[in-house]
Design a protein around this nucleic acid. Sequence first.
RNA 1: GGGGGAGUGUCGGAAUGGCAGACGAGCAUGACUUAGGAUCAUGUGCCGCAAGGCGUGGGGGUUCAAAUCCCCCCUUCCCCA
Length: 821
Amino acid sequence: MSDYSPQEIDKKWQRRWALDKLYQVNEDSTKPKYYALTMFPYTSGDLHIGHWYAMAPSDVHARFKRMQGYNVLHPMGFDAFGLPAENAAIKRGIHPHVWTMKNIENMRNQLKSMGAIYDWSREAITCLPEYYKWTEWFFLKLYEAGLAYRGKAPVNWCPRCQTVLANEQVVGEGVCERCEEPVTHRDLEQWFFRITKYADEMMEHQGIDWPERIKIMQRNWVGKSVGTELSFALDHPAVEEKEIRVFTTRPDTVFGVTFMVLAPEHPLVAKLTTPDKKAAVEEYVEMARHRTEIERLSTEKEKDGVFTGAYVTNRLNGEKVPVWIADYVLLSYGTGAVMAVPAHDTRDFAFAKKYNLPIKVVIAPPEWNGKELVEAYIEEGTMVNSGKFNGLPSKQGIDAVSEFLEKNNWGKRTIRYRLRDWLISRQRYWGAPIPIIYCPKCGTVPVPEKDLPVLLPEDAEFKPTGESPLKYVEHFVNTTCPKCSGPAKRETDTMDTFMCSSWYFLRYASPGCTSAAFDDRVKFWMPVDLYTGGAEHAVMHLFYARFFIKALRDMGLVDFGEPFTRLFNQGTIIAQRQKMSKSRGNVINPDGYVAELGADAVRAYLMFLGPWEQGGEWNDTGISGVSRWLNRLWKLVLEDYSQNTVTDSADSQKAEREMSRTLHQTIKKVTGDLDTLQFNTMIAALMELTNYLAKAKETGLVSDTAWENAKDTLVLLLAPAAPHLAEEFWERTGHEYSVHNQNWPRWEEELARQEEVVLVVQVNGKLRDKFAVPASITESKAVQMALEREKVKGQLGDSEVIKTIYVPGKLVNFVVRFRPT
RNA sequence: GGGGGAGUGUCGGAAUGGCAGACGAGCAUGACUUAGGAUCAUGUGCCGCAAGGCGUGGGGGUUCAAAUCCCCCCUUCCCCA
């Protein structure tokens, strides 16, 4: 028997599988389909162990489903447009296309070394014209459907880099990720997708099996609040506006308003401020400008503000209330003004206390005795001090007051969302061009479908000017209007790369389709049965992809409304107790481990180091443990077995029964763990089986056929986790290629059942003894046997047994009262 | 501040109301060996000579029985503001 040399085995089988097209997928409908998708990687350069952590276990699951008889699609591709490619161009003078394709080449080879069942003939690369042609097409479709529009919007702007930044590039306390300059805002004409049209539907996750946490994040992201927008009358000589509008979810408390607060940046502030307050107000506005939003909204920080000297009138009761400014009110959120009800809002309460503003109770807590509140009462209660609404439960008051406000034209019930439309314009080169032409005569004209793709010109210059590099490529910009054939100009912004990743799963299902973005094969494969990836995409990619599919559904292009039926988020893998990052220099590259210990050891270790959803720490001694296990397996499976002929057949029958039981129990455990993606305990179960079989081999009690059967079962169970080693075993033990085309072993409940169980005996819930009994033992027999045990007798003494608890096959618990001695 | 996780031996973790610590790492002792970061065997939660007692971040509760369910607190990670 030769030694286990994973390097050779890896290469040998990877070559063979590729040659035989073993993992090529077709739309064979004789088997149930299973679409297992892993989020595709960004083409950053090389694959680190984090990528393996995302991909190896999902490959194991896909392989398992394949052996279970499903027609499995488990594709791979590359998210290839994006900023880093452009930065590389600026920094090192390499063209983004060259940089990206080189990275893909490298990453593809690394991926191949993992031994996954990716069908490379279905690969999708988002930066190639054959792909982004259809990304552009989707833009046109959304435009036709009225879901794409152009409008002015503030964008993040770094004054030092002279460039627009994506939200993700604004880090920490609002600074540029590259130069750490504080980011400012600029107003630019931008393209948006009307994702807010789907706000309500985006909060629903009916019929899909997603982690609660992600669903909650998405609901919070939509941030629906039902309330009323109402106005306060303003009568100020210097101001045209005759009212200030506020939004509240608690119209039942409007009678309790004792002041109003404007955001310091509110356009009315300068006009409203009386001369005597001017200095203080200006000073405060200046100070607020230097605070971050986090500081401003933190409830730990004491709220401060200043009085403007102006007043507004509460229309419900005619009371004049002072107008303050405070930085806990943000202009960007809501109307930039809030009505303050200190009695029933925590922040308003603190503010009122600090500045000695009146606190007027309008919602009486149950059994309130008219005393001053020591803290804001935010719960429901009975309306008081509220004119004709007095005595009404506050819950009904919300409707009653809203109705009254509406009748008088002082307000309107409104639903407000935190969700904003999706801004897809990027002032960048390395993305799919927005297929729009601006004609002086015809206005905004979409590029006709037949003219797609709008190709990215190769000869752009990458200066960080803050404008799209395409703007300076004259042969790109200058074009003719598709309508009137007059001279016209192209849109020079490109699309957010999340646009590319919002439909790539459709492309995998339609490889080679040149006449459309996708074809009927999508009907066969979609929706994705299991989607796995990091949770960081909760309110970005996963959100956008859902929106996309809903929009396509409404256009009649697909017949389902959710792209991903089941979602699972794996955790993060860390190194040296920290997240891996290039700057920390703790990035683990899998290549060295693969070269030394083989792909199977890396795969198995990643599964074994902890629960997949928790992630964990990479650790060199940990992988050596797994590697040792594979070496032990090598010996166990390939060394000759010889039955110990001196044993009688009763012993050997018993041993065979036990072995069969262990096998069936392991099949059950491993199958269950693979279904629920609990890879760590699956590997542990396989290790246990290995240890068990090693002992059985030594005793040599079972027949040759029983041994062969046990070995084969082990190899089959191992096949998804360690595909190379299992294939080698399969060949060397004389089976027909390939192990990966075999059926997944089934267990029989009858054979997995224990014949003997260990019964635990407790006295008053404390463990006192345990002994083996037949699994079929009756309650009375079990109790009787327990009472006869010496240790139990000693514990019980002459005390009185009040109650006996029996859990079948598990334990007997005697509840006793000790006699006083 | 709000929302969501997590806290168990020396370490990664297992057990989701019923034997706490599966599996692996580490450590210890022994075997084999010229040698060992190899392999094999045995042991390994803590206190105790033992009988026994204690033990799942801390405190309280429910239960015959709690790592697991409930309440309060502490620590920590992630997301949002």
